[in-house]
Design a protein around this nucleic acid. Structure first.
Lengths: 134, 134
DNA sequence: TATGGACCTTCCAGCGTTGGGAAGGTCAAG
DNA sequence: CTTGACCTTCCCAACGCTGGAAGGTCCATA
């Protein structure tokens, strides 16, 4: 099938599919007219990629996971290691965001939010108030 | 003072300070030799930017906040609106990451992580298992 | 057969926020 | 006079696409 149908069936934009070919995540065949030709195996790989990306795996993680997916002699430990690394990064991001959230929400709650110019948020950002480290 | 000292005193890399000038967040004067010359007001603005960026505000949010910071007749409501918008985006990001985390950690926990090829993580990513929507 | 439109191709450029590095000017110390 | 630390501008890379331009292909219809 052509790229349009592959896009429709995997939910990935055609542009993204071309990009995945360019960075050699997939290698669809070419028809005589030069059009990319996708088979079921390509579709499976694209769907795999779509799910892995939706879980936040980097492209390089995806490349590794795809290689493991295709390697029938893989050890599940190798897959798990990649996933645990990603999990750790997710946890770190969540922690960072929670920290931001805590400080910011403190400032927001202290701000009257009316017509007057006095503003604890700006005070906090300008370093005139406690609650902001760094 | 020169950019090196400004960098040291605000904790921002010199490269970043030059970028902030390029996108017109700051406008330091120039000495006769062409070097940027930072005064205390510039330092305050840079520190303000550093704190706002550390809280995850976008550059455009920072531009708005800086304008409000410098406008003595601002209404705190305008500041609060920007901050609340950002807080909302943070909450959304946290929610997205928590969702990823939940799915991924489920898969990781189901994976033996040994020498055998059987792997629930790959099964999940390939769509052969429950727990992965979209 | 001609035309139109939907598809496909490649190539180039940009997003945001730096970071790295080249090539070269300036300044202070020895 | 040299050395080395600083400064300047400019260009490229990163991430993972996304948009658009210019042009080829295919199919249906007039």
């Amino acid at each position: 099938m052509n790229i349009g149908e592959a896009a429709a069936r995997t939910g990935l934009p055609a542009k993204t599919i071309r990009y995945y070919e360019e960075i050699r995540l997939i290698q669809p065949h070419r028809a005589e007219n030069g059009y990319r030709s996708f088979d079921e195996k390509d579709l499976h790989k694209l769907s795999f990629l779509a799910r892995a990306r939706a879980l936040g795996f980097s492209i390089e993680d995806c490349r590794m996971l795809l290689a493991l997916y295709e390697d029938e002699t893989r050890a599940s430990a190798d897959v798990k290691r990649v996933a645990e690394g990603h999990l750790k990064r997710i946890d770190q991001k969540i922690a960072d965001l929670e920290a931001m959230r805590a400080t910011l929400s403190e400032l927001v709650e202290a701000c009257a939010g009316d017509h007057r110019p006095d503003c604890p948020i700006l005070k906090g950002l300008s370093g005139q108030s406690a609650g902001l480290q760094g």
